[in-house]
Amino acid sequence: MAGTLKAEWHKWWATVVINWRRLLAYKLNFLLLVIGPVLVFFFIRYQVWAGIYRLEGVDTLQGYTFEQMLAYQVWVMIVGFLALGFNGMNLAEEIRLGRISSYLLYPFGFWPFQMASFLAFQGLQLLVATVTLLAVWAMGWVQLQPLALLQGFSLAACVGLFWFQANFVIGILAFWLEETWVLRVMLVTLSQFFSGALIPLELFPKALAQALHWLPFPYLTYMPVKVFMGTYTGSLWQAFAVLLLWTLLVFGLARVVWRQGIHNYTGAGI
């Protein structure tokens, strides 16, 4: 039993390591992946909110001062680093062109391979997030509180797990669909809006904000951001529970879809 566990651990770790090697093989590509969100932050989010406050000629918007809004947007970026993986992006193509055939032959499952690849990417993202966070903290844009950081990182890890599983399900729909990117764009757009990544949920109509509490969306950005900021007043347990429930639901869905999909797989291209 211990031997099997050790062998499994070696497989997971070797997959993580090989993914690091792959990610770092193209240094410029990796650099762009890392600094892309930072550039977006400075050139778009910062400018947009600075413009809004200037044009409106106000000091606060729904209780947010410009500095608080800036801090909110910084944390959105950090949560993005921690939770949004890029797994599943190429999954559909790999299925359609029959590239997953190789993975079906290895004595290591396809899901564990994808999961380990995701963890490898998130490991690097954690490093990037930490460096970015230290830089903005040094600039005085955010405040760091140990307990809030611990809770925020834990919640963000759960969000990452949910996103991974959701992307996985969408990716393996390629067993039936030619392209799955439309579905991914729809999900990302919906979640961007309803998760508070674009505007804080306080600016939403009250009824809608209430209803959203039972959907995964607010937990994907808004909640972790508020937790990181130390201003979250709701139940942290509820946040973890709702998120975990949705993750389990999507996990179950992935199992069903995979089982059916692999039955339909034709292994095109070999």
Binding site: H10, K11, W13, A14, I18, Y106, P107, F108
Partner: peptide
């Protein structure tokens, strides 16, 4: 060589 090391783990 990196792939071979990975396969070493996969095939135990």
């Amino acid at each position: 060589m990196d792939s071979f090391v990975l396969l070493q783990r996969y095939y135990e």
